[in-house]
Amino acid sequence: MISDLFSVTVLVGILASGIRLATPYLYAAIGETFSQRSGVLNLGVEGQMLLGAFAAFYVTLTTGNLWLGLMTAMLVGALMGLAMAYVTVNLQAQQGISGIGFYLFGLGMSDLLFQKLMGTVETVKGFPKIHIPGLSDIPGIGEIFFSQNILVYGAYLLVPIAWFVLNKTTLGLKIRSVGENPDAADSLGVNVGRIRYFTIILGGILSGVAGASLSIALLNVFQQNMTSGQGFIAVALVYFGAWRPTGVLGGALLFSLINALQLWVQVLNIPVPSEIAVMMPYVLTILVLVTSVSKVRAPSALSKPFEREN
């Protein structure tokens, strides 16, 4: 019954899983924030996540080493990013279309590798919860905030780091200038191509980690298309968060909490058709994007290829 939702245990459960489920969104959307701030729209995030998730899972399954799995996912993400950067910077491709191409590649490739190398769904023992003496024992609070695994903590730590890099470092200034007016940045000696390579590859690495967080830290399985649109939601979150890491954090939390609620609704057998419950986060994506027409402008050069005239 609906009233089941309002017991303390359930609320703590919803909040704890909400915090946890924000992890892949955070990695992917922070990565996307970097590339968009430099003027590159990367729609291939979903594909990068899928390949990252597979790589992490498969390496962990075969070697038993979670860290090796995570690093493989980062490497795969970086390679995907490198390819995207080449297509975007050197070939000056239309970013919307090439991004969709990279998504489809990641989707197909991860599925193919899964069929060829594994064939059946298996499970691994993922990153364990970290017990922080004292903090983890606080009733409620401890369970919500202080009994998560390392990748969850990493995701939240990434937010202030990204904010700092973008706003306080010379590199961040260059990234913003390239996304705003690449011609002007170029005239001032900023290497537009190199900056974009950097942000796209960084985005790829973080998407790889996002995928790994699903397959070896949260769900500990790999299935075909297991990201089920989370990469695209991450792109939407960048818009929702107005290209700011803190905004992205807010958006990611909102989504994961709704998602957690939806999961618990199903777990508790509350008589809401499961299709409706599963749909909620997606409907919310659309509603939020439509209503949160923010006053913040997108980076002016977003999705525009840069070419020096001659």
Binding site: T169, T170, L173, A185, L188, G189, V190
Partner: peptide, 8 residues
């Protein structure tokens, strides 16, 4: 922007 002034 354009001034090479180190990391920060």
């Amino acid at each position: 922007i354009g001034h090479s002034g180190g990391l920060f």
